[in-house]
Every structure is written in structure tokens, then in C-alpha cells.
């Protein structure tokens, strides 16, 4: 039985927003989130009942984030790309701002792999499908991304590195 779409928004809205923030930074994440859920609502009645709803949403978000970036590239804003204080105000502290800058500096594929693995918690098999490569490539992209983040943002990520 297909549950009301509102339940899907309630259960996955926050995770999808975090994924969008990692993909695009806090500024453009709202647009990607809105596009994702509008698209999902349209397609929802045709989604098989056995589908992994979160993986489905992340797949849509992946495409929408690419669209948002494409539009941004075509119409570059005069403003700096990384806002000093992110919109929403729930990412406080300069350490976080550093992290977001480091995330933003990652190559797209690494940033995506990190978002889908560490924010959405998807298995690499799902991530490989979204990124369109092998499972091994997805795993490597996440590992490389992590390595780069550690290198460029050593302050916040020490425990994981030393254990």
C-alpha cells in the first residue's frame, strides 16, 4: 500500500536538504530541495511499492543539483559563490564555514559520493547507480573525497583520522 506523500516529505525532507547542502552549499540547496520534491510528487504514484524511497529521492536530488549548477554556470552571479554565513542560520561557527568551503572545493564526483554515503547513508551499490559507474569507483570517490577533506580541513576531522 502506498503511503500518503506527506509522510515521505516528513520522513526524508531533512536528509534530502542535507544532501542538497553538501552538493550545492546552503545557498542553492533550497531550490534543489523544492525541485526534488515537486518532481517526486509528480512521479510518486508510479513508484513501485518495493522501491527504496530515500535512494529514489537522492537520485532525483542528484539530477536537480546538476540542473541548478548548470543554470548557475550559465548565469553567473556577481556575488561570491560561498556565502560567509549560510542561509538558514543553522550552520553556525567559522569551523563549519571552513568545512563547507572545503566541501565546495572538492571535485563534483567526490562531493556527490560523500553526500550519498555520509549524509544519506546509501550503500555503494546504490551510489554507483546514481553516479553511473562501478561500485568500486563510487567507493574510491568517497574515499578520495574524505582524504581531500582531511587534508584541506584538518581541524574538524581528527578523530577519524587518528583511529
Amino acid at each position: 500500500m502506498k503511503e500518503p506523500f506527506e509522510n515521505v516529505v516528513a520522513r526524508h525532507g531533512a536528509t534530502v536538504l542535507r544532501v542538497c547542502r553538501v552538493l550545492l552549499g546552503p545557498h542553492d540547496a533550497d531550490d534543489a530541495w523544492s525541485e526534488t520534491f515537486l518532481s517526486a510528487l509528480r512521479a510518486y504514484p508510479d513508484l513501485p511499492e518495493t522501491a527504496n524511497v530515500e535512494a529514489w529521492l537522492v537520485t532525483i536530488a542528484h539530477r536537480k543539483a546538476i540542473d541548478v549548477l548548470r543554470v548557475a554556470k550559465r548565469n553567473p552571479l556577481p556575488v561570491g559563490e560561498v556565502p560567509e554565513t549560510p542561509a538558514g542560520g543553522d550552520l553556525p561557527g567559522s569551523a563549519d564555514a571552513d568545512l563547507w568551503a572545503a566541501v565546495k572545493a572538492l571535485p563534483a564526483k567526490q562531493r556527490q559520493a560523500i553526500a550519498y554515503r555520509y549524509v544519506a547513508g546509501l550503500p555503494y551499490a546504490e551510489i554507483a547507480q546514481i553516479l553511473g559507474g562501478t561500485v568500486e569507483a563510487a567507493r574510491r570517490a568517497a574515499a578520495d573525497g574524505l582524504k581531500n577533506l582531511r587534508k584541506n580541513h584538518p581541524g574538524a576531522i581528527t578523530r577519524g583520522a587518528s583511529s
Binding site: G13, S34, G88, V119, I157, G160
Partner: peptide, 28 residues
């Protein structure tokens, strides 16, 4: 690897405040 990188995971998953979600829901 997920367990080892709990700290990173936690950082990237900074809580989304309820206001932001309410605003997005309204827009939806």
C-alpha cells in the same frame, strides 16, 4: 568506514532547523 568517520558524518549532517523545513514545505 562509516563508524570511523562518525565525526565527519556528524559535521556534514548538521541538524536542519525546523523553520527551514517549514519554509520549504510551504513553498512545496
Amino acid at each position: 568506514d562509516i563508524r570511523h568517520d562518525d565525526d565527519l558524518s556528524a559535521l556534514l549532517s548538521t541538524p536542519v532547523d525546523a523553520d527551514a523545513l517549514a519554509r520549504l514545505h510551504h513553498r512545496l
